[in-house]
Structures are given as structure tokens and as C-alpha cells.
Simulated assay, not measured.
Amino acid sequence: MKITLFGATGMVGRRIAAEAARRGHDVVAVSRSGVLPVDGPGVTALAADAGAPEQVAGAVAGADVVASALVPPRDGTDPRAPFTAVYDAFLDGVRAGGVRRVAVVGGAGSLTVGERGTALMDTPGFPAEYRGEALAHADLLAALRTVTDLDWSYVSPAAVIAPGARTGTYRLGGDTLLTDADGNSTISAEDYAVAFVDHLEGGDHLRRRTSVAY
């Protein structure tokens, strides 16, 4: 399978590239810098701007699926409008490039918790410094849910995702935050990548959100 991956040099993007290449897929790793995110066969680097539709169209031409690990701006400004604008342009580029299937690395903030279905980002104790990013991802998910001409999917991680071990184990959920027996919601970035590439290979859960956690 040929996968064009945007945001390939980030924490999650690099691990998705590595996991997909490990399984023998052909990965075009796209970033602004064009830096190769992982060593080894199966991954080629390409410099392109996700906010420039013509560059996106050229990058995705011939791909079986486009994957996005793009993240909202983290410069202290409100990320919502810029993130929406980038994704609007990005999806226009995907369409122009002739690819129908798009898989997005999502956020956890809009996952619901408790009997009332409160969003995680609206619960007491949610870190204030992450609220803008959570809102930006919630906006993206809401926008994707109106898209009918692409086979999109949105894969939310656990509340806590960080570099760790690749165990190959995980659980799948939907719009509700997955927690373990102790109430913790975690996933390693490596196992999130396993789940994400499994999803790419399976081709299921289209036009909806999936969540991943231990």
C-alpha cells in the first residue's frame, strides 16, 4: 500500500512512518522541512506545505490513502482558526490529487466522560495549556462529520500519549474516553501507531471517530 503521510516528523507521525515501513508499505513522509523521519527502506521524504492545495495534490497523487498527523499551532496563539484553514486547504488538495481515503490523527479532548457525556476538555483538571489544541481538534472533527465526498476517519488517542514501548496491544472505542480498571487513559505513541496502521490496512471505521487506549 502506498501511504502519503503529512506531519511525518512529529512524535506520532514518525512512529506511524516507522510502523508502516516495518510492515512493507511504501511511505511518502511529507513535512515542511522534507526531513526523512526514520532511517531504513520504505520511507521517502518530501517537502510540501499542507496549507497549499497544489502542493498537497502533487504529494498525494497515486497514493492509496493519505494519513495526517498535523497538529495545531503551538506558538501560544489561538490555534482554532489557523488549524481549520490548514485542513480546509489540505482536504482540497487531497481531492485535487484524486485520493478519496483520508485518515487523521485526532485529539482526545472531545472524547466524552461520565454519565452526562461531558467532553474531557470540559472536565475539572483538564490542563488549561492544552485546551486551545483540544478545541481546534474538536472543530476539525465537527467539520469532517459534514464531509461526504471523502472516506475520512479520525483516530483519537488516550488522554495521555507519550513515547514508550511497542507492545502491539490496545483497545478500540468510539466517542467515549477509554480507561483502564484504575481509571487511567494511556497509550504509548508506538502502540497508537500500531493501531493507526492496523486501521489503514483494515479500511474500516470510515466516516467516524475511533479511539485507542490500553
Rank of each mutant, 00 (worst) to 15 (best):
R116V: 12
V60N: 05
R171H: 12
H137F: 14
V86A: 08
P41L: 07
K2W: 03
A195I: 10
R116I: 03
S153Q: 14
L46Q: 00
V113Y: 01
L5V: 09
S68F: 07
D88Y: 04
A81E: 15
V27S: 02
A136I: 01
V38D: 05
L111A: 09
T44K: 14
S156I: 01
K2R: 15
D191N: 11
V60T: 04
A29L: 07
L111W: 06
H205R: 15
H199T: 02
S31H: 05
G34E: 04
G183W: 04
V65E: 08
E133T: 15
L178V: 00
E201A: 15
V30M: 08
T169A: 14
V94T: 10
N184W: 13
S156Q: 03
T176I: 07
G107Y: 07
D26W: 09
M11E: 15
A45H: 00
A195N: 02
G42S: 09
A128H: 13
Y130I: 12
H199S: 06
L150W: 10
S31G: 04
G174K: 13
A136F: 04
V113I: 14
R32M: 12
A48Y: 11
T179L: 07
G125H: 04
A158K: 10
T112N: 05
T77F: 12
V104D: 05
A165D: 14
V60R: 10
S211Q: 04
V71I: 14
G42M: 03
S31Q: 01
H137E: 14
A181T: 13
Y192H: 07
V197M: 06
V160T: 15
S185M: 02
F126D: 02
R166Q: 13
I16K: 11
V28L: 04
V194T: 11
I161C: 07
E190Q: 05
G203P: 06
R95L: 02
Q55I: 02
V94A: 07
L141I: 12
R131D: 12
T118K: 13
R15N: 07
V194Y: 08
D180H: 02
D151P: 03
A195L: 09
T186S: 13
V160E: 14
L144G: 00
F196Y: 12
E54V: 05
P157W: 09
R32E: 08
F90E: 03
G183D: 01
P73W: 05
G203L: 05
D175F: 06
T210I: 14
T118W: 13
G117C: 08
Y170L: 06
D122C: 10
A189C: 12
A96C: 10
G174Q: 13
E133M: 15
V38T: 08
T118S: 14
G173A: 03
S31A: 11
Q55D: 00
V197F: 00
M1R: 11
D175Y: 01
V155P: 09
V71F: 11
T148W: 04
T167I: 06
V35I: 14
V94K: 03
S33I: 05
L140N: 11
G98F: 07
